[in-house]
Each structure stands twice: as C-alpha cells, then as structure tokens.
Design a protein around this nucleic acid. Structure first.
Length: 451
RNA sequence: UCCGCGGUAGCUCAAUGGUAGAGCAUCCGGCUGUUAACCGGCAGGUUGUAGGUUCGAGUCCUACCCGCGGAGCCA
C-alpha cells in the first residue's frame, strides 16, 4: 500500500512504497530505462522505469508521454547519491492523469526572448527560475506583513476606484463608473493618512495603477505597493522605518529563500551587506557629490562611466534628479541609499516643507543598489490646514475634492508621514532579476495585456 | 512624445549584392544509470509589410508595421 507524498518529504520515506503526483519536467533514457524528471511544486525527483520489471507494453506507453503530462507515479523510494535530492523512485506503475503534447517551452541552453516566454507566462511559471522569483516574491510579501504585524500596525485597505488624482502628477487610468469618470488608484496614501489619525500606525498594501508610457525594465502599469502611514512620525523616523524594513526583508530572504537564491545564482554578499545604517544624503549634498563624480567619470577610461558622466546633473540645480544621477550615487555604496530634502517645487503638494529651509521638502527617496532604481518614495506630510490649502492652490488641484483630506488637518492634526515601497522593484533587487516583469505572475505593461 | 537597436526555421542565431545555413526542439532510429544526456537521420522558410535600385536583394534605398532598450515620469 503506497502513500501519496510530496517530493520534498521523500527523504523521510526511504525504502517505503510511495505515490508521487506531478508533471513530467524532462525525460532521458535508453531502450531499457526511462528517467522521468518529475515536478510536483515542492521539488523535483527522478523516477526510474525499468523495462524488465514493468513490461514492454507499459515501458513503451510511458515513453510516449510528452513534457508536462501530469501523472501519478507509484513505486519505491530508494536512496541514491547521484540524485540532488538523495532519493529516487523505482517505478512499479504509472497512471497518466492529463496528457500533454507539443509543450511550447523547450528546455534549452538558449535563453529565449523574455517577451516570447511572457506570451506563455501561464506555462513558463512552471520552470525553475520563474518559480524561484515568484517564491521570493511570496516570501517578501510575508516578510513585510510580519514586519508590520510585529510592530502593531493595522492593515488598512484603501479604495481602488478613486474620484481624482491623489497627487495630481501621474497619468491615471480612467474608467467609467455608472456614467461618471473614476480612476484606478495610483496610491493609497491619502486614505492611509486618515487611517493613521484613527489607528496611529497603519499600512496600506494594495495594487497601484500608473498609465505612464514607460517602457523600461523597471516599469509596470499595474504593481503592488506597501504604504505605511504613521502619526507623530517625522522625517528622521520615516527614514529609520525604511531602513529597518529593508534590512528585515533582506535578512528574511537570506534565511528563508536560500534554495531559490541559489537557483537564480544570486550573489548573497549583496544581501548580507544590507545592514543599518544606510547612507543618508541630502539633495544639496548630492549635488556636490555628483559634480565631483561627473568630473571623475569624464576622465575615466571606462566608456560606460564616460557616458554616465555626460548624463549626470543634466537637469540642473533645483530640478529633480535624473536616472543617471541616481545610478551614480547608488554606485558609491553597497546598500540602499536614502536621499532626502528634495526641492519642494518638484515634489507632491502634500509634502511638508523643511521649516529650516522651505525651499526643500521633508521627503526621502530610497535608491536600491544594482541599477534597480527608486524602491521607496516617502515624506512627512503637510499637517497645517492653511499651508495645505496654499499647496493645493499652487498645484491647481480641485479644492472641493480635497475637503475630506483637509478635514484631517482641521480636526486634531498631528505631524505624520510614511512612504510607499514598490513590491516588484524590491523583489527585483532581492532576487537579482533583470526585468521587473518577471517579479509578478502576470505582468501588465503598456503593450502587454495577456495572458 | 523623443532617441537608439532590432525583425531570417518552433527557439537561439549565421549568411562580401551571387543556390538561405547551423545548434537546439519536434519526428524516426541507436545506446543497459541518464543528470540542460549522448550518437545518427528526416523534415522544417513568401527572410515583418509594401514599393524602389539592380542582370540578380535577407543584404542597398524609401515608407510603414511590430518589438526591445533608454530618456522623460515614477515604485
């Protein structure tokens, strides 16, 4: 009598009769033996079919099954040092469950175009590398939830349909809502602020939609964002929270995602170095550093650095930093970098201005290493009713839409703030994945609507 | 929207303006323990589309379509 076992548990079932249920990942063999590589979601195991024990007819039938056929395999689990798992199955019977013919993805040394694989994303995710990335995503999500749960945050969901632009900057997806225009949320932050004044500490974890026509390896039109919002938290505390959380995520994954990180050949030292404190540099300091780097790289013999030099500081002082600026700064460190106090003019209306120098906002961006770019954008919020009214006017935003938001400053305002962490870019960074598209099961981009 | 690169077999890619090819996959055959197995063979094409130059175009020219990367914007 055999028992159904998960592949990951087979080591504990050596010398007993087992049943494995899975998919045929690959097959090798000769005229007397089939080596079936089976996958069940928990691991891979080799099942050995011997013609002399199973009979000619059965042997031929099993040999004809295509890749990704699903089957129940019955046999004896035996120890085998040649197997990575340490166990293989000596097959006595195979029961086909779902036939699979002409599977569209081949196991190959060639690395096919990612876009072609994304066309069959529903199948591609059965392969080891995509599975490893998505498993890391799952663990990053778990780490984030645990991090906030341990710190007494209330999970606070913001609406997806919103009546207007939260920040008035990004391009939104418009949708028709019973005859009126509504928009898909580009941030839950404003709602999170209401939650923070009710609960003290909340975290919004939800989908986010941006209709920007960005076509880069860092952009999606639909992605997930984690937005803590905390009463009484000022800029320094926001930066403390951000670095504590990123360290927590990196350490969590080092502890729990070793097999996946190995499959991806991730350089673990890049994650081990993610320890507090992270560098904190003001926008004004960054300008000075970048001026130096621009000169330094211009003299470099490395053509890439030379090219980078040309793009550094091309926006001019007082403007937002460009991509080259972020790259140049993050190259200087082995961990995420926090850049704070950008010019308030280039930032969102709700950011509080620095009382010491109102030209700058009490905000922070966190730039991940290895070219992933910005993974966190956050700020202390403007908590004065009158100042906020001024900002809304300056940004030419519809005052009536923000009445409820202004109420938060009218009835017991307190200093508060938070940030948004991009889940997919975080996974991209942790897993060392080139394209952010691979970090979400079914990516949505400007040109990709299916599967 | 702008800039750059590209589109040749199912996949990854070759091919001085002169008969469109290889590896892998499929299929067929071989191999008594394979590890992205190996060996042999068959088959596989309107070279993105439409024009143009030329004795002759995958290659040169023009336009368009599609894709990728980047800028801007952002997580």
């Amino acid at each position: 009598m055999s028992t159904w076992a998960w592949i990951k548990d087979l080591k504990g079932a050596i010398n007993s009769d087992v049943e494995v249920r899975g998919w045929l990942h690959n097959r090798r063999g000769n005229k007397n033996l089939h080596f079936l590589q089976l996958r069940d979601g928990t691991g891979f195991v080799q099942a050995v079919v011997d013609k002399s024990t199973i009979g000619d007819a059965e042997f031929e039938r099993i040999g004809a099954y295509g890749y990704e056929s699903s089957m129940k395999v019955f046999g004896k689990a035996v120890e085998d040092k040649r197997s990575k798992l340490g166990v293989e199955i000596q097959v006595s019977r195979v029961e086909l469950v779902g036939e699979s013919k002409d599977y569209p993805i081949q196991i190959s040394k060639d690395v096919p175009n990612i876009e072609k694989l994304l066309d069959v994303r529903h199948l591609w995710m059965r392969s080891p590398k995509p599975r490893a990335i998505l498993k890391i995503r799952s663990e990053v999500i778990q780490a984030i939830r645990q991090f906030y749960y341990e710190r007494d945050y209330v999970c606070f969901d913001s609406p997806i349909f919103t009546p207007n632009a939260c920040e008035g900057t990004s391009t939104l997806f418009e949708t028709e809502y019973f005859g009126n225009p509504m928009y898909l949320s580009q941030s839950g932050q404003l709602y999170g602020e209401a939650g923070a004044l009710a609960f003290g500490k909340v975290v919004v974890f939800g989908p986010t939609f941006r209709a920007e026509k960005s076509k880069t390896r860092r952009h999606l039109t639909e992605f997930w964002m984690i937005e803590p919002e905390v009463a009484w938290l000022e800029l320094d505390g926001i930066m403390d929270l951000a670095e504590e959380k990123l360290e927590y995520i990196a350490q969590w994954c080092l502890k729990r995602c070793r097999p996946e990180l190995e499959i991806l050949e991730r350089d673990l030292s890049k994650l081990e170095s993610v320890k507090r404190p992270f560098p904190r540099i003001s926008y004004s300091e960054v300008q000075k550093v970048l001026a130096q780097k621009k000169d330094e790289f211009a003299k470099s013999s490395d053509p890439e650095l030379k090219k980078l030099s040309g793009d550094i500081l091309k926006n001019g002082p007082g403007d937002d930093l460009g991509a080259a600026d972020e790259t140049a700064i993050s190259m200087q460190y082995d961990r995420p970098v926090m850049i704070h106090r950008y010019p308030s003019e280039v930032k969102a209306f709700y950011m509080k201005r620095d009382p010491k120098d109102p030209r700058f906002a009490l905000c922070v961006d966190v730039i991940a290493p290895e070219g992933v770019g910005e993974i966190i954008g956050g700020a202390q919020r403007e908590d004065s009713h009158d100042a906020l009214v001024e900002r809304i006017k300056e940004h030419k935003l519809p005052m009536e839409a923000f009445q409820w938001y202004l109420d938060l400053r009218k009835y017991g305002t307190v200093p508060h703030g938070g940030f948004g962490l991009g889940l997919e870019r975080t996974v991209q960074w942790i897993s060392g994945t080139h394209h952010v598209r691979e970090t979400i099961p079914f990516p949505r981009t400007i040109v990709r609507m299916s599967p």
